[in-house]
């Protein structure tokens, strides 16, 4: 039987549902955080900054309820979402006993981390 090798199985559907959900959650969280930041910025009549702050400044700003930092966190959350989905897909492949694609997805994640690491040097 070749049907158990195809992705058109309940495993494949579960994987799709999971991947789609991670992406949706990532985007909704980012929108919600950005909306809070924008509303705060309007209330306090603060303009948006012209550079996205670095993580340490964002963390500090959030503690102080700084709208600029909250909007920044929203932008960073969306950038992190493809990582989260790749990680979840790798784990889901592993759980479904598909070690080959779990390893391939893990490799993609590792290469992405290396490329980000290289860019920061």
């Amino acid at each position: 039987m070749s049907s158990d090798r195809t992705m058109h199985t309940s495993d494949g559907e579960r994987l799709r549902e999971l991947a789609a959900r991670v992406l949706e959650i990532g985007f909704r969280v980012a929108v919600a955080i950005m909306a809070v930041g924008l509303v705060l910025a309007v209330i306090r009549q603060e303009a948006l900054p012209s550079t996205l702050e670095q993580p340490a400044d964002i963390a500090e700003g959030i503690v102080q309820g700084d709208p600029e930092a909250i909007v920044g966190l929203g932008i960073i959350s969306i950038i992190l979402t493809p990582f989260a989905s790749t990680l979840v897909i790798a784990i889901a492949f592993y759980r479904q006993g598909d070690r080959r694609y779990a390893a391939i997805s893990g490799l993609v994640l590792a290469i992405l981390l290396v490329s980000i690491g290289l860019s920061l040097i």
């Binding site: 948006l48 550079t51 996205l52 600029e68 493809p82 992405l112 490329s115 860019s119």
Partner: peptide, 27 residues
């Protein structure tokens, strides 16, 4: 393309070249 662009976005972020006044309305 999302996975490929993450790396590019990180490079520009580390060089302080992500401008929220453009990125927010674009998003």
């Amino acid at each position: 393309v999302g996975m490929t662009a993450v790396a590019t976005a990180a490079v520009f972020y580390s060089h302080d070249e992500i401008d929220p006044t453009i990125v927010v309305p674009a998003m």
